[in-house]
């Protein structure tokens, strides 16, 4: 099989960027990615390296938040790997049971690494990341409104 070790070892900065977009792709919905893909223009042909499949991830926690690991429980995950004729490989790993989501994430992961499609796709990712950030800010603002502002009541004469 074609594995990533055939490619030149990416710089750590490249890895950081890839980690970031993979996180954004995982948090987006399949519908959003479907629409975003349409904006990316003509695309290369991809074939499956590993067909979309559903499985589980055992989620771990830490005792006392910072101590030894323990198994909390499982969550569903979908994954998919694709490659194109140039040997460009993309992987998708997303929470939930939407195979199409995993496939789209894999296609985007491959495109984002390519020279010709990279820049267009990065804009798409930036938009999605922005939307995710706004949603989180909105939620945080609602939480902030429930913050307790203590005031001390002075009792007695002095």
């Amino acid at each position: 099989m074609q594995s990533d070790r055939n490619m030149p070892l990416p710089e750590s900065r490249e890895i950081e960027r890839r980690k970031q977009w993979m996180g954004v792709l995982a948090r987006a919905t399949a519908t959003q990615l479907e629409a975003a893909l349409a904006e990316c223009g003509p695309l290369p042909e991809f074939e499956y390296l590993r067909r979309p499949e559903i499985g589980m991830v055992m989620v771990r926690g830490r005792a006392d938040a910072k101590g030894d690991q323990f198994n909390l429980g499982e969550m569903t995950v979908s994954r998919c790997s694709v490659k194109n004729a140039d040997g460009l490989v993309g992987h998708g790993y997303v929470a939930g049971r939407n195979k199409r989501h995993a496939e789209l994430a894999a296609v985007f992961d491959a495109l984002l690494q390519s020279f010709e499609h990279g820049s267009v796709c990065r804009e798409v990712i930036a938009t999605l990341a922005g939307e995710q950030h706004v949603a989180r800010k909105k939620r945080n603002a609602k939480t902030a409104a429930t913050k307790v502002n203590f005031f001390t009541m002075v009792r007695g004469e002095d």
Binding site: G55, M56, V57, R60, R62, V77, R139, T143
Partner: peptide, 20 residues
């Protein structure tokens, strides 16, 4: 009915996006 594919990295609750 599902295969287990991975074990996660331990979730870091110190970086939780707190709602309460």
């Amino acid at each position: 009915t599902l295969p287990r594919l991975y074990a996660s990295r331990p979730v870091d609750t110190t970086t939780m996006h707190v709602r309460r």
